[in-house]
Amino acid sequence: MSSPRHQTPPMDDKILELLADRALGELSPDHQADLDRWLNASGDDDSMDLAAGATMLAMLGKTETPPASVFTRAAQAAEQFQREQANGSYRPGTPALRLTDAEPPQPKRVGTAWLGWLAAAACLAFAAIGWLPAFRARQTPQAVTSVSLASLRAEVDSANDATRSPWADWDQPEIAGVKGEIVWSQSKQKGYMVFRGLPKNDPTREQYQLWIVDDRGIEHRVSGGIFNSGLAADGSGWRGQVRCEFVGDDLYVEVEPRINVRQPTLFAVTIEEPGGTWLSTMKRRVCVAQPKT
């Protein structure tokens, strides 16, 4: 949330209107740059978002009881979240499966709680939502000039337990005909993917995400990385959450699960929102690869 007006630098009416537009989900791309400039200079301000949330609560009046299926799905999500907490892959401020610039929590300072909240809220804004302009600015794909995966490929290829699994069309794929393979070393917990014919994506609209399914089943799928297919102006690969590079027409992408996986039984690629997702519906399907056991 944000600081009230009396504790923030004076805002002119234009900034207030931009913050209101943002809180209402109506900020136009043309105005995002204006707001970004102000936010960069003064820090984010979530007071308008808090006002919108409070207004919605006021209009709601009271809550409804969800259907039982909501609690069932919530329990499944809770189980996965708690597993992540327990195994240490949950790191506050750096969600494992989302692009974020959020900072770890800072110690609370006596007498500046509101300012601390402001900073925290700004971080939250970046972590929680992809539409915030400041987050958008940070999420703009950056050209990476040194992304060679040669050493990784060599390391994985030389592993005794390296498996090579070719990509095949998934059932009802949104994108069909993608070729290539995924190479994975269970002992090293490392791997890489090769794609041919994977269409270029617009990273501001959607990204590809790898899912690793092991013997615990698809409900316990683990993200293997968020990535893009495309080229920057300088010819290097657009960087997603993991490293990638083009070698000829082949796109090589690092596999980087944030938690240890058991013996994979399936690798699957989906299309997700920018920044990926923690719980995919697996509805936007691309390709799958089944390791030989």
Partner: peptide, 28 residues
């Protein structure tokens, strides 16, 4: 809900109620 749990550490009871915090995250 997952988003709320993952960002739960950012909540400060001195600044807002949990309901307001959750409403803000939910709306976004």
């Amino acid at each position: 809900l997952v988003e709320i749990w993952r960002n739960a550490y950012r909540y400060d009871a001195n600044i807002a109620s949990e309901a307001a915090f959750i409403a803000m995250v939910t709306r976004r």
